[in-house]
Design a protein around this nucleic acid. Sequence first.
DNA 1: TCCCACGCTGACGTATACGTCAAGCGTCTC
DNA 2: GAGACGCTTGACGTATACGTCAGCGTGGGA
Lengths: 137, 137
Amino acid sequence: MGSNIKDAAAGETLYGIAELAEAHGVSQRTIRFYEDKALLSPRRVGGQRVYTEADSKRLSLILRAKAIGTKLSDIRTFLELYGREGEGRLRQLEFVIGKTAAEIEALEAKKRQIDQTLAELRIIHDGAKERLARRRG
Amino acid sequence: MGSNIKDAAAGETLYGIAELAEAHGVSQRTIRFYEDKALLSPRRVGGQRVYTEADSKRLSLILRAKAIGTKLSDIRTFLELYGREGEGRLRQLEFVIGKTAAEIEALEAKKRQIDQTLAELRIIHDGAKERLARRRG
DNA sequence: TCCCACGCTGACGTATACGTCAAGCGTCTC
DNA sequence: GAGACGCTTGACGTATACGTCAGCGTGGGA
């Protein structure tokens, strides 16, 4: 039972949209939305979407990128980089190098901002804890 | 002469909305929007908004929080914590401690995600650079 | 004195990221 | 074979974070 599609002829593991949604903790609507945005492009079996392990990992990437505040449109261009990464054309390589460098810099800047905010939060947190302790002590 | 309001009676430095917007690199509309959302509440002088240094710092906080992906509504509750932080009532202290702890944890999780993404990006980046070097070498 | 730059408010528009609802089709089950 | 599910598409709705535009008021310089 479970609707996992594992044919006798041991192919790779495939998933239906319900499973994928469940596994990643997102709604089916969200997954279809990502498909509209060309972030995912599952195979179709009689009209129904069928996802591979690769699709699943891709979705993980998407969700992680989203979690750190990357726009879906940016995520899309990045996934294209991933895809093209294997190709060797010069212009493409330069493009990839530039894009990744820029993104790396942006993320490191974000980390610095987070660190600064963390520092402030800890001051407030620790201060409040101390005052609480004094009141009780 | 810039419209900086510095009266003879050396009070604190005050800013008009244009200056504040310029200084922080945001639009006036954005600043008014934040006021609608109760993130800022400048004094009024004959209907016009007048901002203090404190307002300016507050705006910095808001913008940094936004940059790391915090929703404006969350930023607002956090600014309220900042404000109340001085008070000593027990329930408030506990509230602040809980909220800040949760936020600290969330930010650290975000940092971990960023680190993971950074690692992946560096692999792609370095790989592309290497292939580029080989082609040219 | 007149006019323009600046600021204010309010209404409406836009982009992003989904949620919700309706209607239809295929299949599984009793 | 009749529901009951599950999945599909399409249309419309919603929340967030602003941008844009119109219309009005005010103060200061030519």
